[in-house]
Simulated assay, not measured.
Amino acid sequence: MKKLGHLNRDIARVLASMGHTDSLVIADCGLPIPEGVECIDVSLALNVPGFFDVLDSVLADFKVERAVFASESAEHNAAVVERIAQMASSKIEVEQVPHETFKQRSREAKAIIRTGECSPYANVILHSGVIF
């Protein structure tokens, strides 16, 4: 049995397949899943697992170069705004775009991890960095 990193075989597979600048979305339960983009649905119930639980787990096992958030989170989700600031201070480039632009960009992701999160604009596009 796998001891370190992700136990979810689909998340582990996607993370292992990521190349430099490839993107992965971590989404709340309401974000539309574009046709043709793999959806790894880990939702169990409302807010389970939460967005930050999944984000923290992925960040522990994935080299992120850039993160994209919906700019609407500034008005509607203080916890996401706080995480944006933390990521920016940890040398991850952070970009904020309108939610409609975010949804369009999610079409380019290798996969979307759908959480049970129910707070507004709790979504991020993570772009892969390199470990060397």
Rank of each mutant, 00 (worst) to 15 (best):
M1W: 06
K3P: 02
H6T: 05
N8A: 01
D10H: 09
R13F: 04
V14T: 11
V14C: 07
L15S: 12
A16T: 01
M18V: 13
G19R: 14
T21F: 15
T21A: 14
D22Q: 10
S23I: 09
S23A: 15
L24T: 12
I26P: 08
A27M: 13
P32D: 02
E35T: 13
E35R: 11
V37W: 09
E38F: 07
D41F: 09
D41P: 02
V42C: 02
V42T: 08
L46C: 11
G50P: 03
D56C: 07
V58F: 09
D61I: 06
F62N: 01
K63D: 11
R66G: 00
R66M: 08
A67I: 10
E72S: 03
E72A: 06
S73F: 00
S73I: 00
A74Y: 01
A74P: 00
N77I: 02
A78K: 07
A79M: 12
A79E: 07
V81M: 02
I84W: 08
I84F: 09
A85T: 14
Q86R: 12
A88W: 04
S89C: 02
S90Y: 01
E93S: 14
V94S: 06
V94N: 04
V97T: 08
T101W: 04
F102E: 05
F102G: 13
Q104T: 12
R105N: 11
S106I: 11
A109K: 04
A111L: 10
I112H: 03
I113Y: 04
E117W: 03
E117G: 06
P120H: 07
Y121D: 00
L126N: 01
S128R: 15
G129E: 03
V130S: 10
